[in-house]
Design a protein around this nucleic acid. Structure first.
Lengths: 344, 344
DNA sequence: CTGAAAGCGCTTACAG
DNA sequence: CTGAAAGCGCTTACAG
């Protein structure tokens, strides 16, 4: 399964082979300029021949920096964490840093344990990956290194939170429908307890009002983030309001359920009813019948942005407050202009 | 955003406060028994008062163990990695270990870079999270610490691979349908290039043969892992073989597409046609209309098993070969017995 | 330009 | 039972 762990190559080995002291070897490898070119060459060659890998622990002990950050979350299992995590990793890798991953599963004890563990491991900073539903209690007080909150907002205004811009996403979706010529637009979304659902619903209403329109049914339909709810709500809506010509859905699962029901009721998508989803969850949005126009949250970039701000903080340039990252509308086949009216 | 990094509390601080040497303080904290009870008490109290966290780097430098493992993958974005990752993390945490996460995105250069980085960070071992599609080239040769492969098999027989048992999963699904009294069973699955698809199809055939049945259409329908393919294949099948009474699908997306089409063609699920999915991807399986009977791969446990074997290897008890973890049938509403025949 | 020495924070024989 | 000393692998003033 694995070979015997052999004694690793140390700087001492490299120095000996190059015929210099460890101090000189260290300088040569770290590209400090107080080394003769020929000496440097010999050291680099020796290091190469021995496949020398500097022991990061020893270096970290000296410099006080480990080039490691701790990523703390409760929601790895959710659909949103992975793209963010990939963005974090990308941004870290380009700064030669690594990420220690901890999912506390929503358990406060476990979270405290992880914070202690990460600090004992001398991480240089933290990324706290939250959930967009609600403010989360700031952890910064107990953490003596820089912290950035991403996707979920910290309740402390001095912290830095990097968030998806719900208002922007809802605006993109609604303006898209309005600009296509849709005039009877409904909004089916998740639970009203979700901050993101409320914020987006408020924006939908504002955009419609500015366009001289009102929401079909008067209010958004709050429910759950499921296909089932989409199917149920669509049936209710289409029955009560036959003239409906567009539905903006709170996520792609709801939109998928809506699409299935709209088709079952014999309406054509996008001609009779146009549908917009939210999240651009590829397995749902691209594989829906028809493929969904939807809002992409740019999650990967969210993670990258968070890390860039963390880097700035590590360099002594901390920021605070809330950064909202713009969304992006992905147009597929579920939206289009209304069919031309037959002349009277 | 973060408070000034203050000088961390060291063992020296604790020793001074307790009025002992660092050597004694170290022994007291590490529960070695060569310390007087009263001395230990004083040390523990001092450590507590100062909120002392031992510097893991320094300890690692001495012991040569960092209590860290590297998790190397190419497929974090896929649906299968996260549950496995959570299982890995759970098992590690209970051994007081942490995980450094690296996703090479399928890029060989990047993978080499990560291996070097992880080794420089002195990880105690590796978990290589692969994909079930195919054998992957062994990395063990270049890694001087224990390695366990999970979900994707290493091509080297001396390595240890912990895998989902595709044969078992396919058997559970097929036997379930047969035992319900289904006699005209079809199989719609992903690309034939996928090892898992071929292995499972072979098992379906074997189980049917043992029951004196044959696959409807003679062969499995290979396609892609999408709803779209499910819809298309279902339409083809039902048109050509009206008597079909069950469809076993290669994943839950295909099954969802199949279910939608079966309903559209006016057949009742599960009475006329029973459907079994694969993967138990909750967002698809539980939210399908009707909710899907499906095969759960026990992915979290796969991760845990891998780590337990890694621990054994770290303790000098390496194993090798292939371990296949059993699956689990989750019965929901998409399967049931055929309706009673009307007596002639 | 080079190298001996000190030191990062901790653990572990070893002497007392 | 306690503590002085050596050392893990490296970096960084400092002296030469």
């Amino acid at each position: 399964m694995a070979r015997q762990r052999s004694r690793p190559v140390t700087l001492t080995d490299v120095a000996r082979r190059a015929g210099v002291s460890v101090a000189t070897a260290s300088k040569a490898l770290n590209a400090r300029d107080e080394v003769a070119p020929e000496t440097r060459r010999r050291v680099l060659q020796a290091a190469d021949e021995l496949a020398f890998q500097p022991n990061v622990l020893a270096r970290g002990l000296l410099t006080g920096r480990t080039r490691t950050i701790g990523l703390l979350t409760d929601e790895l299992a959710g659909r949103f964490s992975i793209p963010i995590l990939l963005g974090v990793e990308d941004a870290l890798a380009s700064g030669q840093m690594s990420v220690l991953l901890c999912d506390a599963r929503g358990d406060a004890i476990r979270r405290q344990h992880y914070i202690r563990t990460l600090l004992a491991r001398q991480v240089d900073g933290f990324v706290v990956l939250g959930d967009s539903n609600d403010l989360r209690p700031s952890l910064t007080r107990q953490i003596p290194v820089p912290v950035v909150y991403v996707y979920g907002e910290s309740d402390h205004p001095k912290d830095l939170s990097v968030l998806a811009d719900d208002e922007h996403g809802a605006r993109l979706a609604t303006e898209h429908l309005v600009s296509l010529g849709r005039r009877h637009i409904a909004h089916i979304t998740g639970p009203e307890t979700y901050r993101a659902a409320r914020d987006r619903a408020a924006t939908v209403r504002k955009v419609l009002t500015d366009a001289g329109l009102t929401l079909v049914g008067g209010d958004p339909l709050y429910g759950e983030w499921s296909q089932r709810w989409g199917r149920h709500a669509a049936r209710t809506l289409l029955t009560a309001h036959a003239g409906i010509d567009a539905i903006f859905c709170g996520n792609d699962q709801i939109a998928t359920g809506v699409a299935n029901t709209v088709r079952e009721l014999g309406r054509h998508i996008p001609d009779d009813v146009s549908i917009v989803g939210y999240d651009n969850w590829h397995e749902f949005a691209a594989d829906c019948q028809p493929p969904l126009t939807t809002v992409d949250l740019n999650l990967q970039q969210l993670g990258e942005t968070a890390v860039h701000h963390l880097f700035a903080a590590l360099d002594g340039q901390p920021s605070s407050g809330v950064i909202r990252q713009p969304c992006r509308l992905v147009v597929r086949d579920s939206t289009g202009p209304p069919p031309p009216r037959l002349t009277a």
